[in-house]
């Protein structure tokens, strides 16, 4: 299951790297809007160049790429808590509920992004402002509360329509806490005039690293890469030790 989810994420990343037309389209349309000095015309132009369906696909790809690895734990939970014949169905309902929350948020984010870009064409100011907000949010007790709730799963029904409803409900609640935890981080790469994918990769690493941490009492603190860094260092030290032993044996 874990490998399948990681594969989905990897494929989505490939599409994101390859399909830069959306970003390029937005940038070119924004540039056109800037030249025309007409916001009304610019919005129309933007919508024409980037119809909602295209936005939705882009956002879904982002979700799949960035968030799928964080869903491994709840999906594993659904797997072991369901009858074998229901696993796929419950997993699908969970993902649907989760994605529905993010898609709703995504519509708002994309609208805000478009608006901001119209006001500050090719500017780093929106991203810089949001980076400041994200920094404050990242260190806040509220963020920790959301992160803690991302580890919750509760119990759900195993039979009938109740099981379907509970899987959907679990997806929605997980999505809500995930949005609470990651909204600022997700918005940040969207507002950059360039370097979207690189910023998304950085944010994605941060989001995944945060989930590795155990729930902890809320408080003001820097959080994010600590545990992930320690894991990487520990594994690197172990690898180096292994290589050194092999080299010594050869000598």
């Amino acid at each position: 299951m874990r490998n399948r989810v990681l594969l989905i994420s990897a494929v989505a990343w490939v599409f994101l790297f390859a399909g830069t037309q959306f970003s390029a389209g937005v940038e070119s349309s924004v540039a056109a809007a800037s030249e025309s000095h007409s916001h009304h015309a610019s919005s129309a132009s933007l919508l024409k160049m980037n119809p909602p369906a295209s936005w939705a696909i882009e956002w879904l790809l982002m979700l799949a790429a960035m968030m799928a690895p964080t869903l491994i734990t709840p999906l594993w939970y659904i797997r072991v808590r369901n009858f074998a014949r229901r696993r796929l169905r419950s997993s699908a309902l969970f993902v649907f509920g989760y994605a529905a929350v993010w898609m709703t948020v995504g519509a708002l984010v994309l609208a805000a992004e478009t608006g901001l870009k119209l006001l500050h064409v090719q500017s780093f100011w929106p991203a810089a402002t949001l980076a400041m907000i994200a920094l404050v949010w990242q260190t806040s007790p509220a963020k920790q509360r959301c992160l803690n709730r991302c580890h919750a799963h509760g119990s759900f029904a195993a039979f009938g329509a109740s099981a379907d409803l509970d899987a959907l409900r679990f997806g929605i609640s997980h999505g809500v806490w995930c949005v609470g935890s990651c909204w600022a981080l997700m918005l940040f790469p969207m507002l950059l005039p360039l370097g979207h994918v690189a910023a998304m990769a950085a944010v994605s690493t941060l989001v995944f690293s945060e989930r590795l941490e155990r729930p902890t009492p809320p408080g003001w603190r820097f959080r994010g890469l600590g545990k992930a860094t320690r894991i990487v260092l520990a594994q690197t030290a172990r690898l180096c030790k292994g290589l050194r032993l092999v080299a010594e044996q050869k000598d």
Partner: peptide, 9 residues
């Protein structure tokens, strides 16, 4: 406790 390391589970 929801904010304990067990996440209240």
């Amino acid at each position: 406790e929801p904010d304990d390391e067990h996440g209240g589970e």
